[in-house]
C-alpha cells in the first residue's frame, strides 16, 4: 500500500511501488485531466506538480512520490480553478483538442511560480518540453505572458 497526497487528500493506493504516478492519478484515482502522450518523459502531457515543481508523472514511481504534495490540474489553485494561467488560457481560447493543455498549464504554472516575470526566451525554454499536436504554441506563449501580467495584478 502506498499513501499519496493528491490535491490535499491522502489516498491509499493498492499498486506496486514501481507503478508510474500517471496511471495511479488517471486510472486508479480517476483524475483524468492528466494525460498520457508518450510514457517516456518526452511530451509533457502528464505534467503534475510534486511539491510545487513540474514533473512528468509518467516517469515518477509512486514509491518515490509518497509524502510529497501532488497537485493535478483538478487541484490547481487549491481546487478552485481560475488560476491566473487558467484565466489566461480561457481569455486567449488556447485549447483546440485540449489534450495537451492540462500538462501545458501545469508546466506554465510551476514555471511562473518560480519566475513571475519571465523573458520571451525564458518562456520558450520552459515550455519546450510540452508537445502540442494542434500546434497552439503561439497562443501558449501569449497566454503565459498574459498569466504573468495577471499575477502582477495587471
Amino acid at each position: 500500500m502506498t499513501v499519496l497526497t493528491v490535491n490535499g487528500v491522502n489516498q491509499v493506493v493498492d499498486a506496486p511501488g514501481d507503478t508510474r504516478l500517471l496511471w495511479v492519478i488517471r486510472e486508479h484515482l480517476r483524475l483524468t485531466g492528466t494525460k498520457f502522450g508518450c510514457g517516456l518523459g518526452l511530451c509533457g502531457a502528464c505534467t503534475v506538480h510534486l511539491n510545487g515543481e513540474a514533473v512528468r508523472s509518467c516517469q515518477v514511481e509512486i514509491a518515490d512520490a509518497e509524502g510529497a504534495m501532488i497537485t493535478t490540474i483538478e487541484g490547481l489553485n487549491g481546487g478552485q480553478g481560475g488560476h491566473p494561467v487558467q484565466q489566461a488560457w480561457l481569455e486567449l481560447q488556447v485549447p483546440q483538442c485540449g489534450y495537451c493543455q492540462s500538462g501545458q498549464m501545469m508546466n506554465a504554472a510551476a514555471f511562473l511560480a518560480a519566475n513571475p516575470s519571465p523573458s520571451d526566451s525564458e518562456i520558450i525554454e520552459a515550455q519546450q518540453g510540452n508537445i502540442c499536436r494542434c500546434i497552439t504554441y503561439n497562443r501558449i506563449k501569449t497566454a503565459i505572458r498574459r498569466a504573468s501580467d495577471i499575477m502582477q495584478g495587471a
Partner: peptide, 15 residues
C-alpha cells in the same frame, strides 16, 4: 468544449 479543457474535466475516449 473550451471550459472543460481548462479545468481538466473534459472527457476523452481514454477517460
Amino acid at each position: 468544449d473550451l471550459p472543460g479543457k481548462i479545468d481538466g474535466s473534459a472527457k476523452y475516449g481514454s477517460d
